[in-house]
Simulated assay, not measured.
Amino acid sequence: MNLTENARANFETLFGVSPAQSDLAKTDPEFFSNYVNFSFDEVIVDSKLELQERLLIILASLVAIPALSEYKTILNAALKNGVSPIAIKEILYQATPYVGMGKSIDFITATNEIFKAYHITLPLEAQSTTTRENRQEKGLETQRELFGEAIDKGNANAPKDYQHIRRFLSANCFGDYYTRTGLELQFRELLTFVYILSMGGADSQVKAHVAGNIRIGNDRAKLIAVVTALVPYIGYPRSLNALSAIDAIAPLQ
C-alpha cells in the first residue's frame, strides 16, 4: 500500500486499527490505497466537517443508499469516537418517512445488534414531544419554519383526492419525527438533504430542501461541505446533481 500519512492517521482514529489490518488491504491493495487516500485524506481536508458530525452525515447517507455493510462499519467507528447512541437512533427514525420502512427497519435491527454488543441498554430514552392530538399542527408549524408560506399555499392548492397525503406529510413526516428531541432542527433539515440526495431520483425535493436548509441557517458552504463528505459513498452523478440544486437555489455570490 501507498498511503498518505494523513489518510493513515485518520483511518486509525476512526477504526482504532492500522489500515494494513483491513481485509481489503490484503486482497485488493491498489483499490484499498485509492479508497483510503481519497476518503480519509482528500475528502476530509476539503469537507472540513467536525468528526462526529461527519460520521452522522455518512450514517444517514448509507441508510438512504442503502448500504448496510458499510453502515455497520461506520457505526462501529461512530461509537468508538463518542457519537451519541440517541443521535444515531434519531437518524434512523427520521430516515423512515424519506427512505421507507422497508429500508429503515433493516438498519434499526442491525443497529440494535451492535448497540447490544457495546452494552448499550435498549430502549433508549424517549425523545417524542407530540401527541396523537397535536402532531399535525406541530408538524405544520415546523414546515412553516422551514419553508414559509409556500406550505400553506401548497396545502390549499392540492387536489382534493390526495389532500390526505399532505396531511400525512405534516403529521407523520414532520410531526412524528422533526419535532423529536435528540437532534436540533437545523441538523434534522441537513439530514433530510442528505437522505434525498443519497437516494437519487428526487431532484425537485433536493431543491426544496436546499431552500429549507438555507432558510434554517445551513448556508451554501455548509451544503457543499456535506456533499464533499459524501462523494466516496454516493458517487459523482448524485453529488453533481446535488451541487446543481445548490447552484439553482443558492448561487455563489
Score class of each variant (00 low, 15 high):
Ile165Asn: 07
Val210His: 10
Ala211Phe: 02
Leu243Val: 15
Glu125Ser: 13
Val226Glu: 10
His119Ser: 14
Val231Ser: 06
Ala150Asn: 06
Leu243Glu: 10
Val227Phe: 05
Lys222Trp: 00
Ile165Val: 13
Ile120Ser: 06
Ile165Ala: 12
Gln136Leu: 11
His119Trp: 04
Ile214His: 02
Arg188Cys: 01
Asp219Leu: 05
Arg220Cys: 05
Asn134Cys: 00
Ala208Arg: 14
Ser204His: 14
Gly200Asn: 12
Arg188Tyr: 00
Gly212Leu: 12
Ile224Pro: 05
Gln163Asn: 13
Ala229Ser: 15
Leu191Pro: 04
Ile196Ser: 06
Leu190Val: 10
Gln205Pro: 13
Asp152Cys: 00
Glu133Met: 07
Gly212Thr: 10
Asn213Gly: 11
Thr142Ile: 11
Ala156Gly: 05
Ile234Phe: 01
Phe147Asn: 02
Lys222Thr: 12
Arg132Ser: 11
Ile151Leu: 01
Ala171Thr: 08
Gly148Leu: 00
Ala211Glu: 06
Asn172Leu: 09
Leu190Tyr: 04
Thr192Arg: 10
His209Asp: 08
Phe193Met: 07
Ile224Tyr: 06
Ser239Thr: 10
Arg144Ala: 02
Arg135Tyr: 04
Val194His: 06
Pro159Ile: 09
Phe174Ile: 03
Lys138Cys: 01
Glu184Ile: 00
Thr129Ser: 03
Leu223Met: 12
Thr192Ser: 10
Ala242Lys: 14
Met199Asn: 06
Arg180Gly: 01
Asp203Ala: 15
Lys138Asn: 03
Ile214Gly: 03
Ile216Phe: 00
Arg135Asp: 02
Val227Arg: 07
Ala202Gln: 15
Ala202Pro: 11
Ala229Cys: 12
Lys160Ala: 15
Gly175Val: 04
Asp176Tyr: 02
Gln205Glu: 15
His164Phe: 12
Asn241Arg: 14
Leu146Trp: 04
Tyr233Glu: 09
Arg215Ile: 01
Val231His: 05
Tyr177Gln: 06
Asp219Met: 07
Ala229Glu: 13
Gln186Arg: 08
Leu169Cys: 11
Pro123Tyr: 07
Glu149Thr: 05
Gly217Pro: 01
Glu145Arg: 09
Glu125Tyr: 10
Lys207Glu: 13
Gln127Glu: 13
Asn172Glu: 14
Asn172Thr: 15
Gly212Pro: 09
Arg132Gln: 12
Gln127Arg: 13
Gly201Tyr: 05
Ala202His: 14
Glu189Thr: 07
His164Ser: 14
Ile151Pro: 00
Phe193Asp: 06
Ile214Lys: 08
Gly212Arg: 11
Gly154Ala: 09
Glu189Ile: 03
Gln186Thr: 04
Ala158Cys: 15
